[in-house]
């Protein structure tokens, strides 16, 4: 019972704050381009509107078309709740919970990919193929990053792994995790959330046929995932566990804001990569995490 009472406020925090991030990124992009841009709260308006709308289902789709996004959303939310929130505490951690987090993200991928394949559309098949293929490399990088944090702190539980600051390898780890963040959340240079050409999309093409509440759930889940990666990156680099609660909260908020603005700047200043170059960049991210792991190893030995 106390566990539920403890989880509920953090659930509410994730639920309410997550859709802010895409708004901030869009604002940054507009600012760099000299436009006024959509309001920061635009995603909230979109979600509220979609939630009230009806649903158009493909004639080929089974109920799995709607179940998939629901399962994916629960999985992403579960992964988010496993992540400690600095002063706000975390779920009662256990050894190996960082693997549960990684595999919950995989479950979310399975859910969205399943829903996309329901439609039998070649575009969506293409998007799913790209998503699951690039995720292979991103997952290798993510596991290496987690290993680096484990070696550094001598623990396999998220709460202990993320409390101290990353040592000398912080820069490497941050760079590697930032690239993984861009890939997993389908931002430039891997994917362009604003593109309108089906052939070149990854994530956007997977949700082409979704509408109404299922689309709202997908968009909300995507924003939670972005916040999750931004927070993971911040907590991996900053010594959140060693600061006073107020300072830690401010540091977390500042870190997440910095990462979000960074993603927006990358999106404004870089062109997206050709698909055949994507594995190269992801391998680079993996190598960055691997070097971070080796440095952590040297430091701990």
């Amino acid at each position: 019972m106390t566990l539920i009472l403890d989880l509920l406020p953090r659930f509410a925090l994730w639920f309410v704050l997550a859709p802010l991030l895409p708004g901030i990124i869009n604002k940054v992009k507009a600012w760099v381009a000299g436009r006024r841009g959509p309001p920061v709260l635009q995603l909230y308006y979109d979600l509220a509107r979609l939630w009230r709308k009806g649903v158009v289902l493909s004639t080929l789709a089974s109920p799995g078309f709607v179940f998939g996004p629901a399962v994916a959303w629960v999985a992403v939310m579960g992964a988010a709740l496993l992540l400690p929130l600095g002063p706000a505490g975390g779920a009662p951690g256990f050894r190996g919970d960082m693997l549960v987090l990684i595999y919950l993200l995989a479950l979310a991928r399975f859910g969205t990919a399943w829903a996309a394949m329901e439609t039998g559309s070649a575009f969506e098949g293409m998007g799913v193929a790209r998503e699951v293929s690039y995720a292979v490399l991103a997952e290798a990088a993510l596991i290496t990053a987690m290993l680096a944090l484990c070696v550094q702190t001598g623990s396999t539980s998220l709460a202990a792994m993320l409390a101290p600051a990353a040592g000398a390898d912080a820069a490497l780890l941050a760079a590697g995790l930032f690239v993984v963040l861009l890939a997993e959340n389908c931002r430039v240079p891997f994917d362009d959330p604003n593109t309108h050409l089906e052939l070149t999309m990854i994530h956007e093409v997977m949700v082409l046929d979704h509408s109404g509440p299922p689309l709202a759930v997908i968009l909300h889940g995507a924003s939670v995932k972005l916040l999750l990666f931004a927070l993971l990156l911040t907590e991996a680099v900053l010594p959140v566990g060693k600061l006073a609660p107020g300072v830690a909260a401010a540091a977390l908020a500042g870190g997440v804001l910095a990462v979000t603005v960074g993603a927006g700047l990358v999106e404004s200043l870089l062109a997206r990569l050709a698909f055949r170059r994507v594995p190269l960049l992801l391998t680079t991210a993996f190598l960055l995490c691997l070097f971070a792991l080796l440095m952590a190893w040297k430091g701990g030995a």
């Binding site: 009230r52 009806g54 158009v56 289902l57 493909s58 004639t59 709607v66 039998g120 559309s121 046929d209």
Partner: peptide, 13 residues
């Protein structure tokens, strides 16, 4: 929820 909001079938995009 989708059923309450109204479900409509159409061909895949």
């Amino acid at each position: 929820k989708a059923g309450r909001n109204g479900l409509r079938r159409a061909v895949t995009w």
